[in-house]
Amino acid sequence: MQKTSNVAELQAIARRVRRHIVTMITHAKSGHPGGSLSAVETLVTLYFDVMNHRPQEPKWPDRDRFILGKGHAAPVLYATMAECGYTPIESLNTLRQMGSIYQGHPDVRYIPSLEASTGSLGQGLSLGLGMAAAARLNGSPSRTFVVLGDGEIQEGQVWEAAMFGAFHRMDNVVCIVDYNKIQLDGFVKDIMGLEPLADKWRSFGWHTLELDGHDVAALQAGFAEAAATKGKPTAILAHTVKGKGVSFMENNPKYHGVAPTAEELEKALKELG
């Protein structure tokens, strides 16, 4: 893989990742397009610019670690990792089929280069803090990045983890909330509102920033600020649009967990270019 800090190049990769996402979910006839599309820039910026990792040596001890707490957004992780060279691009369309390495939710038994099997919401930040604690004990520069869904942080365990992260001064951890404002049953504000969300993270002792989660340059600046923040972990509230990049999916709760039809895929790919 070729890492880059060039915004246009990262945007081009993001476009490819979006095309993979809608295509693989259409082939699978089920899956979660909305929350996969909302997290694309976050994952692409991390994997292609920010994180230190080696696709040819996935167990390199000092690698930065990535955990997708919102495991149902597996397609964005699979597509990004495939673009990095961890797994084959050509079999992405086997998503959710029996025997495929691209299981419905991330599964380390099938893809050992994943850091964690996720899918039950609320556990990713705890796992990430554990990995970060191990890195600190080892004197490793490894940092850990955890992406949580906004609906996911309704889980109480997230706030247990948030307390732990601040109390133990885990400044090698960055938690990104993919704040796309929609969960399965509808809009977050109607299901279990989270606001004032930045105040919550700050009051739990996290260095907290808010940014446009589709703005690659803003993400780069946010991750740089997190890296420079010592003595406390950083939470990044990435304001995003669910279904970003496909007009009929954008901000539409229906596409939390419904696959596009063949006609919709054609339209989506045309829009994505």
Partner: peptide, 18 residues
């Protein structure tokens, strides 16, 4: 870990994974 067993178990799993 404080009185927070859910976090403790997953945190331990993270340590073990590493």
């Amino acid at each position: 870990c404080g009185i927070a067993e859910a976090n403790m178990v997953a945190l331990g799993a993270g340590l073990a994974s590493a």
